[in-house]
Amino acid sequence: MKFGIVVNEGPYTHQASDTAYNFTKAALEKGHEIIRVFFYHDGVNNATRLTVPPQDDRNLQKLWSELAEAHKLDMVVCIAAAQRRGILDENEAKRQGKDADNIAPAFRISGLGQLIDAGIKADRLVTFGD
C-alpha cells in the first residue's frame, strides 16, 4: 500500500516527529511504499543539518536522513513554511541574499503542491503533529 506521511512539528519539543519516524520505519519494514514524507509548519525544522543533540539522545535529523537514504525516500520541506523559519537550501539562500544554508542533503525544498500531490497519489495519508 502507498502511504504519504505529514510531519507538522519540529524535533524534540513534541513527540510527533519521533512517532512519524517510527511509523514510517514500521511501514517500510512491512513492505509498504512511502511515496513522500512532507514536512510542514514547524516540521520543517527536522531538516536542518546543524542540530547537535547530546550524544546520549537520538538525532532525529540523522535518523530521518538514514532512513531516506536506505529506502530512497522523497522527503519534502514546504518552501513557504521553511522560509518563515529560516530553513534554506543553497539556491534559496542565494536567491534571498542570505549568508548561509542549513538543509540536510536527504531533504528537498518544494511547494505545498507536493502535499496535495501526496494526498492524491497515496492510498493513505497520515498526519503527525501537535
Partner: peptide, 19 residues
C-alpha cells in the same frame, strides 16, 4: 498558533489541483 493561517495556505494552493 499558526495552524489556521498555514491551513488556509494549503487550501489555496490545493485549489489548483481540482479536487
Amino acid at each position: 498558533t499558526i495552524y489556521a493561517l498555514e491551513s488556509l495556505e494549503v487550501v489555496l494552493i490545493g485549489a489548483a489541483f481540482e479536487q
